[in-house]
Simulated scan of single mutants.
Amino acid sequence: MTAKGGPKTKEGKEISAQNSLKHGLTAKGFINELENANHNSLVQKLNDEYAPKGTIESILIEDLAMIRVQLARFKDVEAALFLNSQGQAEFASSLVDSLQLSDERTRQDLINAINTEKSFIDAKHQRVAKWLSTLDESNINEAELSEEIKTLIKNELRTDCIERDIRPLELIEHLEKMNTDPNAPLCIIRLMGVTPNAIKLEKAERDTQLKQINELQMRDYVTAKKVESSQNITKQKLLDRALAQKRALVDAALPAPGEIDRLYRYRTTLEKQFSNKLSQLIQLQEMRERKERQKGGGS
């Protein structure tokens, strides 16, 4: 349990200071040059309005300006909360727009990935990457594919067809379109499982195509898979950049959910402090003016 009054050790105080500065809302000093400029401007305006005399009145003017600067920080929190309430789609779109992508399909894939917390480098990608690596080591650019390599390609093609619910030749055509034409339509997903007979017929057609597929089609499939894998790696790098920006924006504008109530209580405290200090300034000036009138009347 933390001792009353906060951390006592130097290390503890340093950690506490870092906690406050993470979002900047409770920082005692200025957190950027703009705040410093706003503070100086407020001091000048308050000086013009209240014309303070003496050290105490000048200190109160400085305090009032600093409190207003601290209160202004909460606009960032409220703006971030408002953006969050508008939905993650708009936020994701703005993040991806900052990457300045020319390919609309890649842009949309990244937006979907941010909203669904999807990763392009998943277990399936790792499996395919390992499979492609094995093919590269086997030097499939030779004049003819060995039976072992053909089996390796067919096995992956079969797995791919089952996962996507599509026939081999349709899958190869779909991959080639997706890799060359940004406006290529999405593959048509078959409605499997309508009847037991439909499942048998679909499986039989898939197996027939796998048996009849020729070497050129196998090579087309491998080439298309390499392009798809490379695109996923590129998308993952772009996604990592976008998510890093997202984390930076959220950390800068939004404190942790558990801190929000405490910070709004802190804002209320600042507002009360502002009101109290303003009352003190007005009372001091009224007292000073009365004394000056009394002194003037008595002379």
Rank of each mutant, 00 (worst) to 15 (best):
L201F: 00
Q18M: 09
G258E: 14
A27N: 03
Q231C: 11
L95F: 07
S229H: 11
L83N: 13
G296M: 03
L281G: 01
Q231R: 11
E271L: 10
E104N: 10
R247V: 05
P168M: 02
K226F: 06
I233P: 12
D136A: 11
N47D: 02
R265N: 10
R127N: 08
E170N: 15
Q88I: 15
G193F: 03
P168N: 02
M287C: 04
L99F: 03
L263P: 00
T195E: 07
L64K: 08
Q285L: 09
R206D: 05
I15G: 09
L71D: 02
E78R: 09
S58V: 07
H125C: 09
K177Q: 12
E289L: 11
A198N: 15
M1T: 14
L83H: 12
T180L: 15
K272I: 09
L239A: 01
D109S: 11
N214C: 08
L254S: 10
N115D: 05
A143P: 00
C161E: 06
I140T: 07
I153D: 06
K124D: 08
A198F: 13
I31W: 15
E33Y: 06
G54M: 10
L284S: 08
L135K: 03
Q283L: 14
S146D: 05
K295V: 02
K211I: 14
S20R: 13
R241N: 10
G258S: 10
D165H: 04
Q236Y: 13
L60C: 05
N32L: 08
E62M: 02
I140Q: 00
N19C: 15
N115R: 09
N19F: 10
K150M: 06
D48G: 04
L46D: 00
V128M: 09
Q283C: 08
I59K: 05
L83D: 13
A113P: 13
G54N: 05
R241F: 11
V77L: 15
A129E: 03
I140L: 03
T159G: 09
P185F: 12
L216M: 14
H125Y: 14
L46T: 00
I199E: 11
K118P: 01
L145N: 08
L64P: 02
L284N: 09
T2H: 07
G298L: 01
I189F: 07
K237M: 06
S94L: 10
R267F: 00
C187I: 09
E62G: 01
W131K: 08
K75M: 08
E163G: 15
I59F: 01
A79H: 05
L186W: 10
A51F: 01
L64V: 03
Q86R: 15
K10T: 09
L270V: 09
P185N: 04
D97P: 00
L83K: 13
D165A: 07
I189M: 08
Q280D: 00
L239I: 04
E215W: 06
E289S: 09
E142C: 02
L243C: 04
N214A: 06
L249H: 07
I213R: 13
Q212S: 04
I15M: 12
G29M: 01
Y266I: 10
N32C: 12
A204L: 13
L95T: 04
A198R: 15
L284I: 04
A256D: 15
A143N: 03
E173Y: 10
S133F: 05
F74L: 07
H125D: 10
R290D: 11
E11Q: 14
L175S: 05
M178C: 04
R68L: 04
K226C: 06
N276H: 14
K237R: 12
F91A: 06
L110S: 02
E14R: 15
S102Q: 08
C161K: 05
